[in-house]
Amino acid sequence: MAVIAETPRPAPGLAGAFGKFARRNPTIVLGGALLLATALVAIFAPWIAGNDPRFMAPTNRLQPPSAQFWFGTDNLGRDIFARTVYGARISLIVGLTVAVVSVAIGLAIGLAAGYYRKLDGVVMRVMDGMMAIPAILLAIALVSLNRASVWIVIVAITIPEVPRVVRLVRSVVLTTREQPFIEAAIGGGSRDWKIILRHLLPSTVAPLVVQATYITASAILIEAALSFLGAGVPPEIPTWGNMIATSRLFLARAPWTIFFPGACLALVILAVNLVGDGLRDRLDPRLARRM
């Protein structure tokens, strides 16, 4: 900011470029700023939170927001502000990990299915089957049948996302491989992996980046839903979903116990969706019109 103040008309430097970008892509900037803020809060949670999010003081239960407890306390006398701050961690970890893992796995399977036509039939039937299973039920079953942990939650949310990525990648590969230069490469005897890496992979990047943001949003949402249903990450770990779930009894008496985690959850998903919409408009105008 100081830089801008010193130079009256910003030269086409970094700040100027950013300003231009921001004017053209307000959603990306707004969403990105929100996400960045959340990420910073998550990373520096120990310094921001002030209190131990796990510390229970039953004598302090259900206190309204105050100078000592900014967001009040919950039924076990834990500091809701500290828990909300730490809750950002789980949401982001789950959201990002699921996005990265499901895109990686989906990409590999999708490329293979799209390129090796013999594989396609079998792979796509399996994918259709997996897609038909309601994601939330699959996740509830996986998590409650096993012991609760962040990793099980991530696996449970990733599995149903994979077929969606596979379908996307496969359709991109199928259209791309019809292009003359690829047919030429195949005819010219290039190795399979070369064709896949050099020619097919790049064409999937743009749609995948967009898809990844939507997966992130949906993963955060499903994690919260799982925690809400009591089938999520261990209850000792504060997450927005389980904060809401354990507080529902106190909705009338202590609405702050639900309001703060609920608002944060909605805000973060909103931020991810904004970034996704912005990226889609930028990277893939055709897709933008379709969605």
Partner: peptide, 16 residues
């Protein structure tokens, strides 16, 4: 965008 971002159970409890 907002409608797509608020989880069902959050909306549910707000409505209740």
């Amino acid at each position: 965008v907002v409608g797509f971002s608020v989880p069902v159970f959050v909306t549910g409890y707000l409505l209740i």
